[in-house]
Amino acid sequence: MEYFLQLFLGGLSRGSVYALIALGYTMVYGIIELINFAHGEIYMIGAFMGLIVAGVLTSLGWPALSILAIALIVAVLYSAAYGYTVEKIAYKPLRSAPRLAPLISAIGMSILLQNYIMLTQTPDFLPFPRLIPELAFMDRFSNYLGTSDMFIIVTSLVVMIALTLFIKFTRMGKAMRATAQNRKMAMLVGVNVDQVISVTFIIGSSLAAVGGVLIGAHVGQINFAIGFLAGIKAFTAAVLGGIGSIPGAMLGGLVLGWTESFATGYISSDYEDVFAFLLLVVILIFRPAGLLGKQRAQKV
């Protein structure tokens, strides 16, 4: 039973990592139906920015939690600017093009950003400072769950709830839903579609940056390629939960994390990915739109 609990909580923490990245992914898809492959790279850029800020502030001798806060804020601003610019450069000119065109453009953007960071920063792995201090009351549970695991789980939950409320109840949220339903119609009734899409990208990129800093501090190392691997897992989580659905991204991430954790614990870690993707296939056979996705006619 203890072993089961350990695996369960390990899967929960791993799943929250996936969910945190998947939330931004799925939000962009939900509004403009674009699989934003550059999302993983924005996450990586956020992590690099966090590392730079943390490095400077650590050398100035600031306390860990305030460094974390400042690093998060700077990384969010920086990544948001990146997300905004990427949308303007790579996706906006292709808005009326066939759906494959922006997809290719997104892949190109992802490769461009990855190589840009590799060339301008470093191809090496960099140690990320452990910005999340070990809280004393978590000591008893350290066998099950660390403080940084806790931080990530709570952050993903808060982000999920806040996003859901934002989209349901605010003016901008309504405009987003309108844009998602029918872009032309929304434009006709006076929604500034360009602005809505820009805001979507800014929010999505900010979430990626939060993920980058927290996960960087959790794992303890970053390099230019982390966005690619994280992007694949997050994309899987988003599809599993129903791409476009915000609670779905959370659920998909957790289900993926648990599957991997239990597959490793009870069978063999050699087959971790096999079981994760087997589950994905099975779920998509029975629920093609994902666990919480809306079943609707496909626009082809």
Binding site: Y3, Q6, R14, V219, A225, E260, T264, G265
Partner: peptide
């Protein structure tokens, strides 16, 4: 183990 993973806690518990 899968290289590039974020978390190896399951294999460590094992």
């Amino acid at each position: 183990i899968t290289p590039g993973g974020v978390d190896y806690s399951a294999v460590i518990q094992k």
